[in-house]
Design a protein around this nucleic acid. Structure first.
Length: 290
DNA sequence: ATGACTGGATAGTCCAGA
């Protein structure tokens, strides 16, 4: 059946995570992979990973820095019109490597690492909000084909933190941050993991300290937000807790999303159906023979 | 116990992460 798997993972140093990343790629076999916190300059990323990724059939787009931040986009299903950063996004004070996007199988995929915010009302917090506003302006250009993937550094609701009371007054849960996320969703983007697990406890990040993962004391801040024509094709969406276990994990788990594909291998229509259209057939569709 | 861990750069009473 025609299936495209999109994954996003804040790896917290792609160099340190290599012994976990490569086996995970082989096991999960995602077609499109969004990485965050690669923490490598572009030349170092290519030197480290180009051979391994080419062997697995991935084309690669990176936007990195020597020390912090850094994002990447890997794809087996096309990687066209690569765009580094977000137009008119603010810096801190200089531009930071927090976004890369490309067209993959007819979709506009974004690998995002939203600024942390540090302390509410700090300079970094206002930078975070301004950065999200610039992201929204870019998404507004083509919301229906957009898939935002990454570490949004915002827990959408109190159900997305293990102890809402202890987070009051902290970043990631403040009303202005949640409003910025809601403004993105108001463009027609769907939180596909929450849609699939409406009442479950599903976290994507657990602090390394104090056995937080073992006790499942985490947050859900790594999200996949998809335009409606894409969200309609989701057949599975889950947080890959296995990747957070064992030796040398990232503090974030990957998020995996499976989509049914159209007969031509694309994922969604470029033009959404009219609102009075009958529901599209959702069953398995064969990919063309290669 | 305002902690507890990890990564990166540097040799700091480091900074950043969330």
């Amino acid at each position: 059946m025609g299936r495209v798997r999109i994954a996003t993972w804040n790896v917290n140093s792609v160099k340190q995570r290599l012994p976990r990343l490569l086996p995970w790629l082989d096991e999960r076999q995602p077609d499109v992979v969004c990485l965050q916190e690669t923490k490598l300059a572009d030349d170092a990323f290519h030197a480290l990973l180009d051979d391994e990724l080419a062997q697995r059939g991935y084309a690669v787009a990176v936007y990195g820095e020597p020390r912090w931040n850094g994002v990447a986009l890997l794809s087996k299903v096309g990687l066209d019109e690569v765009r580094i950063g977000i137009p008119d996004a603010p810096g801190f004070p200089d531009p930071e490597a927090r976004a890369v996007s490309a067209t993959c199988a007819g979709l506009r995929i974004h690998s995002l690492y939203v600024p942390n915010g540090r302390e509410p009302d700090s300079d970094h917090y206002h930078y975070k909000l301004a950065w999200l506003a610039a992201l929204r302006a870019q998404v507004a250009e083509a919301p229906t084909t957009t898939v935002l993937c990454g570490d949004m550094n915002i827990a959408p609701t109190d159900a997305d933190v293990f102890d809402p009371a202890s987070y009051v007054g902290q970043t990631h849960v403040t009303p202005p941050e949640r409003a910025a996320l809601a403004a993105l969703q108001d463009l027609g983007l769907h939180d596909v993991v929450r849609d699939r697990w409406p009442t479950e406890r599903v976290f994507s990040y657990w602090d390394y300290r104090a056995g937080m993962f073992h006790q499942d004391l985490g947050m859900r801040i790594d999200l996949v937000l998809a335009g409606a024509p894409v969200a309609e094709r989701v057949t599975a969406a889950w947080i890959d807790r296995q990747a957070r276990k064992g030796t040398g994990p990232s503090d974030h788990a990957p998020v995996n999303v499976d989509l049914d594909t159209a007969p031509d291998g694309d994922i969604g229509p470029v033009v959404p159906p009219p609102s009075n259209a009958r529901p599209r057939r959702r069953g398995p569709v064969k990919l063309p023979q290669s």
